[in-house]
């Protein structure tokens, strides 16, 4: 296995959706064993980047190497083998609604292993204990709050002991307490299990407390990278706008539109 410092290497990757380029010549190294934040304004392709890293979509050109495995042209079977080494936390948790909390966490074990029931029970309870929800094992997903769903999904994501754990917008719509819980879990799981965490988010404050490294994406390119502290003083307009939360700047407040006055004077006639 490739033991270099970077667990994910993206080289000159290009990807377009219906002819519109999302990424053109993207280069990125995601360090092993750290918490890496991928940030940027909405619509810059953060989620697309996750889909590329996880092999849900393939690059048009360039290369993405994940844990020593090239994703371009990878066979479905190899991709599934690789995915067993990854865990992913979806924005809404994506729990299987037919199954209880316990069965949701047990699901990957039941599908991929022939472990005896007693061992499955122990593993599931250990992971649920780690996210503080052992007492909720018998509840159904519909009975959980948003924060609890995400914690269950987190337990499910780590039940196969992955090397890479990916979070897609883990803080969206959480109250401050749940948010704090998730932040702490990200740090604790990363350090205790020695995994690599990749967090896609646009919550500047939250990420600056937990991330070891930050990539700021804009317009399909990495416009800044470094520690959260380095980004605070980064000499770039777009970084300042994003970190400072300014309404107007390189990312314009107005969606591209024809001239305001001429459109008003046109009297409602669509041209």
């Amino acid at each position: 296995m490739n033991q270099s410092a970077a667990i994910i290497e993206i080289r000159n990757a290009s990807y377009a959706v219906t002819g519109r380029p999302v990424f053109a010549g993207l280069d990125m190294d995601i360090p092993r064993g750290r918490i890496t934040a991928i940030m940027g304004p909405s619509g810059t392709g953060k989620t697309t980047l996750l889909r590329l890293i996880t092999g849900q979509v393939a690059v048009d050109s360039g290369s993405i190497v994940v844990a020593g495995q090239e994703l371009a042209g990878i066979r479905r079977a190899d991709l599934y083998v690789l995915r067993r080494r990854m865990g992913m936390l979806f924005q809404n948790g994506a729990l299987l609604t037919d199954f209880s909390v316990f069965e949701n966490v047990a699901f990957p074990l039941r599908e991929h292993t022939d472990l005896p029931e007693r061992l499955i029970r122990q593993l599931v309870l250990t992971k649920l204990q780690a996210v503080g929800l052992r007492g909720a094992a018998e509840l159904m997903p519909a009975e959980l709050s948003g924060g609890m769903s995400r914690r269950v999904a987190l337990a499910r994501a780590i039940v196969m002991d992955p090397e890479i754990l990916i979070y897609d917008e883990p803080f969206v719509g959480l109250d401050p307490i749940s948010l704090g819980v998730i932040l702490r879990l990200i740090r604790r799981l990363n350090d205790a299990l020695g995994i690599t965490s990749i967090v896609v988010s646009h919550d500047v404050q939250e990420m600056s407390t937990v991330a070891d490294a930050v990539f700021l994406l804009s317009g399909g390119k990495v416009v800044a990278k470094g520690t959260p502290q380095q980004l605070q003083t980064y000499p770039s307009e777009i970084v300042r706008q994003f970190i400072g939360g300014l309404a107007d700047g390189p990312v314009p407040f107005h969606f591209p539109a024809p001239d305001y006055f001429s459109e008003l004077l046109a009297g409602g006639e669509k041209s």
């Binding site: 849900q56 599934y80 083998v81 995915r83 990854m86 979806f90 990957p108 499910r156 196969m160």
Partner: peptide, 21 residues
């Protein structure tokens, strides 16, 4: 609804083929 709530994608990410499962 499973598609809309990402359950099918989640299975794919758990290396479980949703077609088969």
């Amino acid at each position: 609804l499973m598609r809309a709530t990402d359950q099918l994608s989640a299975m794919e990410m758990m290396a479980v083929d949703p077609i088969r499962r």
